[in-house]
Amino acid sequence: MTDTHMTIPAATTAPARSLPAPNRFRFWAWLRSDKRAAISLAYLTLLVLAALLAPYIAPYPPNEQNLLDLLMPPSQAHWLGTDDLGRDTLSRLLYGAHNALYAAFLAVGIGVTIGVPVGVLIGFVGGWVDELMSRVIDGILAFPPLVLAVAVTGALGIGLTNAMIAVGFAFAPVLARTMRAQTLVVKNALYVEAAQGFGASRMHLILRHILPNAIQPVIVEVTLMLAVALLAEAGLSFLSLGVQPPESSWGGMLARAYHYVEVAPAQMYAPGLAILFTALAFNALGESIRVLLDPTVKRG
């Protein structure tokens, strides 16, 4: 009786599927591929650190006056010179960064808190609610944002917080209209209709399906609005409607330096460039995020 030998084929190892990289790896890959985003994010990170550490890294107290050193040019003792009251410009610039960032994030936060829920609600409900609220939003948008902010500031009272609440109210209709348009698109998607067929509640549909898939354009809008809020704070402080003396703000520093532009023009450079670079950084970061979230853009 002959033995029958059965040949068993060697087990072949299937190639391992590449797993998606963790979020942190994709984040660093995005920064490596987009130098504009990397530079903007690095600048804004340094600005936030400077604002938080201003009490420790500022060479002088921001309101310390030295009447013997009025409108001094940059020197070893005062790297960016002094203002018309002998106060160190660098110290006031660092403390002003705190007010500038606080103002920008406060205004945009108020706009998001009001605009996003209203936009989702009117887009999801539709009907006469959508029609009525859309007309109200269009009516508010007919007013220039800065004029509306000045009017609300006059009603609430002068001060940084009140000024940024006014700017936030001006932002809310823009975000509401953006969110409404996205909600109208997403709520007709097949997965939303399927969830409705399984008996999902309205709140579940909004929180689980509509909001996460409609929020991307709002994220881009928010980064761009941070730059607008920064400029609005500088403009309102320039008009003495924002940060009140002796507190430091970039707009207030520009307002004081404007009166001495012929005597000490260098005093306008520091706050002016700080406003310019910060607004450009927010805009560049927003544009990079828009490209990153755009599914039609090819990335290597």
Rank of each mutant, 00 (worst) to 15 (best):
M1G: 10
T4I: 15
M6R: 12
A14C: 09
A16L: 15
P22T: 10
R26D: 03
W28C: 06
W30Y: 08
R32E: 03
R36T: 10
A37N: 06
Y43E: 00
L46A: 11
A50V: 08
P61T: 03
P62S: 03
L80E: 00
G81N: 05
T89M: 15
Y102E: 00
Y102H: 09
I114D: 00
G123F: 12
F124Y: 14
L132N: 02
M133E: 00
G139M: 15
L141M: 15
L141D: 02
A142V: 11
A151V: 03
V152R: 03
A155G: 04
L160M: 15
T161W: 00
P173Y: 03
L175P: 02
R177V: 07
L190F: 11
V192G: 06
E193W: 08
F198L: 08
S201L: 06
M203Q: 09
M203W: 15
H209V: 11
A214Y: 03
I219M: 08
E221H: 12
L224V: 09
V228G: 07
L231V: 12
S240H: 13
L241Q: 02
V243G: 08
P245C: 11
P246Y: 13
G251S: 10
Q267M: 14
Q267V: 04
L280D: 00
A284W: 13
S288D: 03
T296D: 03
G300S: 05
